[in-house]
Design a protein around this nucleic acid. Structure first.
Lengths: 213, 213
DNA sequence: TGTTTTACATTCAATTGTGTATGGAAACGC
DNA sequence: GCGTTTCCATACACAATTGAATGTAAAACA
């Protein structure tokens, strides 16, 4: 076969990853062969083995295309905390995260694959990856809820530990319910009232809890 | 090979399912061959193909050994609702559910396999199964939270819809965090304060929210 | 412009898993 | 007690993938 331009080669690499996403999503990771991926991209397995070491390497590359923006959210909290209260910053960061999930279809698909379309294989451990993401999110929430408590924002009977577990569990559950079938409902539309309500209930006895629904 | 007694045959069937659980849990469903399962049980594939049609049939049989006791929980709510308030009945049913998860290691393992160790194959769709379980739980919660609202138990700014989403998301998230690595923490120990806190916050302005931790 | 490297396609060897067919001895029904 | 059925082991044929080896024409480079 004729050699391609560097730009063309990069394009086929992207096309292969796109095809991998398609086939992984449709048939699951284990049930899709490298030939199916190659044919979906209009190539042969030769192209796949040129750009990637094997299926595991391809999977890893697919994940690396969607950078997990959790640290970005933390940074946004940080930037906001100078203007608004810490609890309010957390609330806005959660809403921002929901919105982001909704608006990046590639990130949505890759997360769906990671959670529901693959079991571990070769040296890929999706559960460990999910663990890592969840822990990162959890630690971040805890740090900021600790600040909220120090600022006397949390309700009397609410410890930052329980508050963290509550928020993290709720967000995690919402995510899992949604990612199971993202077309069933909008994670943003369902999530906004939940976040507002829960954060509102966490506030220190401000009877006029705001639930803008 | 010599024919076995009916009791012995039933025992090997159970042994095969035990072995399947072990291997599915350890290597994932897709990566375990029927021969691995047979050898783990001290048998050959002949035994497997005698008792089951194929891997999918075996998987289904494995799931059928653990009856999902969600309707039992609903019934327990029903039985309790004559004595205590509806919200209190929901709270107790949630705690009961957590306890049950903790205490049945087989159910725990099978759920872990269903969620994290398999993608769909042949005519098995684990996501649809999880969907079914979640919907059943959600519907049940909603029905009873509707009663709570009619009994004027819910906080003014809390609709039964949002309350349902909150509780269900929180429970689902807690479950997913736990099932990812059940040895990391006790779902009961972490769940009890969460349920108590959340249900407590849902109550209609009873300032003395109870958080027994 | 000539040489080297790149970006694939094609082919091949080897492995792995599946489903089925066959066999055999003991348990079961009568 | 005898035929039949059951429970499982063994053997075989078949398809599906994989990884690597080889081929090749054009791009990149000097």
């Amino acid at each position: 076969m004729a050699r391609k331009t560097k730009a063309e080669a990069a394009a086929t690499r992207e096309a292969l990853l796109d095809a991998a996403e398609d086939m992984f999503m449709e048939h699951g990771v284990a049930r899709t062969s490298l030939e199916q991926i190659a044919r979906q991209a209009g190539m042969t397995r030769g192209a796949v083995y040129w750009h990637f070491k094997n299926k595991g390497d391809m999977f890893r590359a697919m994940l690396e295309r969607v950078h997990m923006p959790f640290q970005d959210l933390v940074d946004e909290i940080e930037a906001l905390e100078h203007d608004v209260s810490s609890l309010e910053a957390i609330r806005l960061a959660c809403l921002q995260g929901l919105e982001r999930f909704e608006q990046h279809p590639r990130a949505r698909r890759v997360h769906a694959i990671l959670v529901h379309r693959c079991e571990f294989f070769s040296d890929i451990d999706p559960i460990a990856m999910q663990q890592e993401i969840a822990d990162e999110c959890r630690d971040s929430l805890y740090q900021h809820l600790l600040i909220s408590q120090q600022q006397q924002m949390l309700a009397d009977d609410l410890t930052p530990e329980v508050a963290t577990d509550l928020l993290q569990s709720m967000l995690s559950g919402l995510f899992h319910e949604w990612i199971r079938d993202p077309d069933r409902f909008s994670i943003y539309d369902r999530g906004v009232p939940l976040v507002n309500q829960l954060i509102g209930m966490m506030h220190r006895s401000t009877p006029a809890a705001r639930a803008d629904r």
